[in-house]
Write a protein that binds this DNA or RNA. Structure first.
Length: 273
DNA sequence: AATGTAGTCAACCGCAGGCAT
DNA sequence: CATGCCTGCGGTTGACTACAT
């Protein structure tokens, strides 16, 4: 990355340098972040003399310089997680990225575009998905029965105790409804991405797994790894439910998963259910 | 070996939301 | 309350690389 960048035509606009970063610039930025921490990107140029906009600095840091970045190819496990989370959330790359420690939204976005946008997921993924959907289907019918037996079909929005946050996945036509409460400590997808082995634990959560995207991702991951015994759950794999984009948006807003992911990534308990 | 094509990656742009003034 | 600035996000673009013909 040394030497003058070739591309991007304009190299300086309004006093800001554009185009590829030089190692010198990288050094300055890294040093700045080390001293002042992340944020306040607009002040970087003033402090360091870097002729880069705050936006550009932030992007460079987030996508390339951050020390916790995982370099190298997306693993099949990560791939499967991406597929699932995309089915759930659509193009919310930053949200998906939060479930994959060391990966950036940009990376995932690029990966998705090149691998899936053209409609050709790997065989690996197709297999996993098929298995996943089958399991989910079985789960669903089981659960449906259980709920009916318990007279637990939920159509309530104003719900019980104020403390426990309860999320109601209403309106979901073919999926029925479910109420999931705080009891479940969702396994960290971070661990999944890192290759953790909590398969058995997961199965114990199957009651909560209904429509639990984090668990789904993890279970799918297990399936990909070759186990395939994981019970699951409320996926919204796009080809099953139609428009992944819309579903993704809908689900995202339903679940407000940001906090969950953060907790999961930090190894803490899932605060959503 | 040369050329064309597809894949990958890094960086830019515009927009929206949040926050401080 | 209105305005402006900052940050973050998603979409897009362009250069580089690998592979195929």
């Amino acid at each position: 990355m040394e030497g003058e960048p070739l591309g991007w035509g304009r190299q300086e606009v309004d006093g800001w340098r554009k185009g590829p970063w030089t190692s010198q610039e990288d050094k300055l930025l890294v040093e700045h972040v080390r001293q002042h921490g992340e944020g306040r990107w607009n002040s970087v140029s003033k402090v360091t003399g870097l002729k880069r906009s705050g936006k550009s600095c932030r992007l460079r840091w987030v996508n390339y310089l951050r020390p916790d970045l995982k370099r190298g190819k997306i693993t099949p496990q990560e791939e499967s997680i991406i597929v699932q989370l995309h089915a759930l959330w659509g193009n919310r790359w930053s949200t998906i990225a939060r479930s994959l420690p060391g990966r950036t939204d940009n990376e995932i976005k690029n990966y998705w575009r090149t691998h899936f946008k053209k409609g050709k997921p790997s065989k690996n993924i197709e297999r996993a998905r098929a298995r996943f959907l089958k399991q989910r289907q079985e789960m669903q019918s089981q659960k449906q029965q259980q709920l009916l037996q318990m007279g637990h079909v939920v159509a309530k929005d104003e719900n019980e105790d104020g403390g426990a946050r309860t999320v109601t996945a209403a309106d979901d036509d073919d999926r029925g409804s479910a109420v999931i409460d705080d009891a479940c400590a969702a396994p960290a997808v971070a661990e999944a991405a890192a290759g953790g082995h909590h398969h058995e634990d997961l199965i114990m959560h199957d009651a909560m797994d209904f429509m639990c995207p984090m668990s789904c991702a993890l279970l799918l991951h297990c399936a990909v790894q070759g186990g395939g015994t994981g019970s699951c759950c409320g996926s919204t794999a796009s080809d099953e439910y139609g428009s992944s984009e819309e579903d993704g948006a809908t689900w995202g807003s339903l679940w407000n998963l940001d906090g969950v992911v953060d907790d999961a990534a930090g190894g803490g308990p899932c605060t959503l259910w």
